[in-house]
Design a protein around this nucleic acid. Structure first.
Lengths: 200, 200
DNA sequence: GTCTATAGCCAGATAGAC
DNA sequence: GTCTATCTGGCTATAGAC
């Protein structure tokens, strides 16, 4: 059925374009400041057409989050394939990747306190599955690093996990970048020092 | 003029009550989710009356921020009076205080990206003066600690300052608290370890 | 200065023709 | 599925009586 398949392909491409716009706008302005009108204008379609693809603004944000989690999982799978690296190195590589995404303006930022958004995310199985996968992989590396003595065993794995997640929305990164005195690489290296010396 | 003075006292008290409500609601829901109607209802006055005291929602938030900066300055003045403590200890004490305020639900949280709010704050002299005072005092302790070798000299003071500021809105704190497995004091002590071992 | 009532606006979501 | 046009609700801010 080439005709149907082609149509579906076009739809998929359009949805990908939508999610890409949402991802960028979420990174630029955050969820509350991003408007659906903006998204429609950025994609180049009418707002009503957007709602044929995604049922709400929250669904748009969820799709963007799923996208970034998929990219994170792909990156982590690449790291896991490298048998030589230590768990500590893997964790550091993940944190570095996270910061690079943020500095590139591609890390969607969601408010922690918006209840409608939280409700939408916590009831979205696709999102939760991926979040769980990321947490599981990181959790393995964390406990392995603690067993190897490279991460402080006085710090509960939960704390270490959250600390790594927090690197994805670290305001220090934004402030240093805004200062304009340091290169992206310098910023990342300094933050990796403060983060991982603190965990060691 | 006891009569006028009394009137002014009542006004002041009412404004203090307003700012206290705003502070709490900002901590609970954040700037975007907090509505002026809520503030009025919480204080127990009509919304129009609120606008006789504060000209805008942004002015309300600014007043709350000025309040917390004043409390921070008072706390730091107390620390500075203790001549025995090292600069490193002073910095740690400030971070601890910041986290305690946050865990007590009294740290107003503002979005970094709201442009109208940013404009209001960056053109508010009372706010900027206090922010500058806090930064100056922290900056002194930071350079002193670096001179004493207790803070890593490879980390530029700017980074250290931002890192300390970021403790006031650390999502790790919120997440661990939400987990409910650890006491406030345990959470704070673990976070102080990760923060200050990273700076050392 | 306090209130009730409302203006004005904007953003999320939908109706209905094509 | 796409569009134009519109609805709906909620929010900031103000008018005007007292």
């Amino acid at each position: 059925m080439p005709k149907v398949s082609f149509r579906e392909q076009v739809l998929r491409a359009r949805e990908d374009a939508i999610v890409a716009s949402v991802n960028r706008l979420l990174a630029e302005k955050g969820f509350d400041m991003m408007t659906v009108d903006e998204v429609a204008a950025d994609v180049g379609i009418a707002k009503a057409s957007l709602y044929k693809h995604f049922s709400s603004k929250e669904a748009l944000a969820a799709a963007a989050m799923i996208g970034v989690l998929d990219r994170a999982l792909a990156h982590m799978a690449g790291l896991a394939a490298n048998a030589e690296a230590s768990p500590f190195d893997q964790l550091q590589a993940v944190a570095r990747w996270t910061m690079q995404v943020q500095l590139a303006g591609q890390m969607p930022s969601l408010p922690a306190q918006n209840s409608t958004l939280r409700a939408a995310l916590t009831s979205n199985k696709d999102y939760l599955d991926r979040l769980m996968s990321v947490s599981d992989q990181l959790g393995e590396w964390i406990t392995a690093a603690q067993a190897a003595g490279t991460i402080n065993t006085k710090l509960v794995p939960e704390l270490v996990l959250y600390t790594l997640f927090a690197r994805a929305c670290d305001p220090v990164l934004t402030l240093l970048k805004a200062g304009g005195q340091y290169s992206d690489e310098q910023i990342i290296e300094m933050l990796l020092i403060t983060c991982f010396n603190g965990l060691r």
